[in-house]
Amino acid sequence: MEKKSKIIILILILLIVLGIATHLFLTPSTVENSGSKNITDMIGRHVEIPASLNKVVATSPPMTTVIYMIAPEKLSALNFEWTDSEKVYVPSQYRGLPNIGGWYGTQDGSYEEFIASEPDIVIESIDEGGDGDLSTVNERQSKFGKIPVVAVNDTTTVKKVDSSILFIGEIIGSADKAQKLVNFNDKYLNEVQDKSSKLSDNNTKTVYYAVGNDGLKTYPSNSTHGQLIDLVGGKNVANSINQGNTTSGFQVSMEQVISWNPDVIITTDPEFYAKVYNDSNWANINAVKNHEVYLSPQSPFKWFDRPVGANMIIGVPWTAKVIYPDQYSDIDMISVTKEFYSDFYHYDLSDDQAKQILLGSGLKEKNL
């Protein structure tokens, strides 16, 4: 009997040892290596990052915008300065985030300032399949030293942004909020793609994107800056312009805009919008005569452009209502705006605040 008891005890000890060994060998990498985990970024690099991230920065505004939308408490710096008007709907705890520049457009990033912000990781934007991305990321990594650099696919195209949002959400510990943002995006993408595919030539509206305080710069189709026009089925009047330059845009003449005579004008420039209805040069254009000029809402990020990125997700239903209000009468823009600001801009709007944002953009009250 005693011998049998010893055998049972030995078996129990063996099972306990095997259980511990199984735990050690099979536990995922996300909880091993003394508080770090190994990930594969979106360029295929294996990167070791802290298991828990408290401070994150990105090298460009589109990536920074995603972080702000899904985990603002983890964003330790910006690549830009919010203007006073943009700060209107920014919660007070985020208004003082420092601007450390970045590597996009102006190329004004400062490695010293990035490092001084003490991030746990740096997120670097890459062009999917683009040349030179690996060397750029490796250069960043060499400059940032022990701070891990994680490469994430470009987030400037609304139709392709989902995978990058989900990836960022997963690595920074905000997967649920990232999924919520993707669900919002997909809901309106699916609706506008379905309805735009059914538009006939007879009911397609022509649209001009007026850039700058004189409105005489624009972007053709297939440009990320005017992508929402294409997405909802508007006909960009600048389609005839050389399609080779979709990044910097084109200067056009007043005569050219008059000859295009667009049904709708969209702008992101408040100065242009404030004067267009009183400018005799624009007076005979259909969009002006019919009060069909619209200003992208500005705060805390523009809905239509600049930056191009996840901030344009709310611009999808707005642009649809701007160009084709009758086809999208089922969308309640006051409710949509309140939902988006609460969930992703971390600011609870009243009905009246949401209404004023929309009326200020030029939407007619009957079309809200």
Results as ranks from 00 to 15, higher is better:
residue 64 T to C: 10
residue 207 V to G: 12
residue 192 V to Q: 11
residue 48 E to N: 14
residue 171 I to W: 00
residue 139 E to S: 11
residue 271 E to Q: 04
residue 194 D to H: 04
residue 366 K to M: 09
residue 218 T to W: 07
residue 177 K to N: 08
residue 52 S to G: 01
residue 23 H to N: 14
residue 146 K to M: 15
residue 363 L to A: 08
residue 309 G to T: 15
residue 173 G to D: 06
residue 216 L to S: 06
residue 113 E to N: 14
residue 335 S to R: 03
residue 355 K to E: 11
residue 274 A to S: 13
residue 1 M to Y: 14
residue 168 I to G: 05
residue 224 T to V: 09
residue 25 F to R: 10
residue 136 T to K: 12
residue 111 Y to M: 06
residue 157 T to N: 10
residue 13 I to D: 02
residue 251 Q to S: 14
residue 81 E to T: 12
residue 23 H to I: 09
residue 197 S to E: 08
residue 213 N to L: 00
residue 278 N to L: 02
residue 212 G to R: 10
residue 52 S to Y: 07
residue 341 Y to P: 08
residue 357 I to E: 00
residue 163 S to A: 13
residue 342 S to L: 10
residue 167 F to N: 00
residue 324 Y to I: 08
residue 242 N to T: 14
residue 138 N to S: 15
residue 322 V to S: 15
residue 288 V to D: 01
residue 83 T to G: 04
residue 347 Y to W: 08
residue 244 G to P: 07
residue 355 K to V: 01
residue 232 V to F: 13
residue 29 S to H: 07
residue 171 I to F: 02
residue 337 T to K: 02
residue 200 S to K: 14
residue 139 E to T: 15
residue 172 I to T: 05
residue 280 S to H: 03
residue 290 N to F: 12
residue 254 M to K: 12
residue 323 I to N: 06
residue 356 Q to G: 00
residue 86 E to D: 10
residue 21 A to D: 03
residue 329 S to F: 03
residue 107 Q to V: 13
residue 80 F to I: 03
residue 358 L to F: 05
residue 142 S to Y: 05
residue 57 V to K: 01
residue 149 V to G: 04
residue 368 L to R: 06
residue 185 N to T: 09
residue 131 D to K: 10
residue 70 I to G: 14
residue 26 L to N: 13
residue 131 D to E: 12
residue 360 G to T: 05
residue 248 S to E: 15
residue 108 D to K: 15
residue 11 I to H: 06
residue 119 P to M: 02
residue 305 D to P: 04
residue 310 A to C: 09
residue 266 I to V: 11
residue 142 S to P: 01
residue 215 G to P: 04
residue 68 Y to P: 00
residue 324 Y to S: 11
residue 199 L to E: 05
residue 116 A to E: 11
residue 141 Q to M: 01
residue 203 N to L: 14
residue 45 R to H: 06
residue 206 T to K: 11
residue 208 Y to P: 06
residue 109 G to N: 08
residue 305 D to M: 09
residue 334 I to A: 04
residue 320 A to G: 13
residue 162 D to N: 15
residue 51 A to I: 03
residue 15 L to R: 09
residue 338 K to E: 04
residue 33 N to V: 02
residue 106 T to M: 12
residue 184 F to D: 08
residue 184 F to Q: 07
residue 225 H to T: 15
residue 18 L to Y: 08
residue 168 I to T: 03
residue 52 S to F: 05
residue 46 H to Q: 14
residue 70 I to S: 09
residue 272 F to E: 01
residue 150 V to E: 04
residue 120 D to K: 04
residue 237 V to P: 03
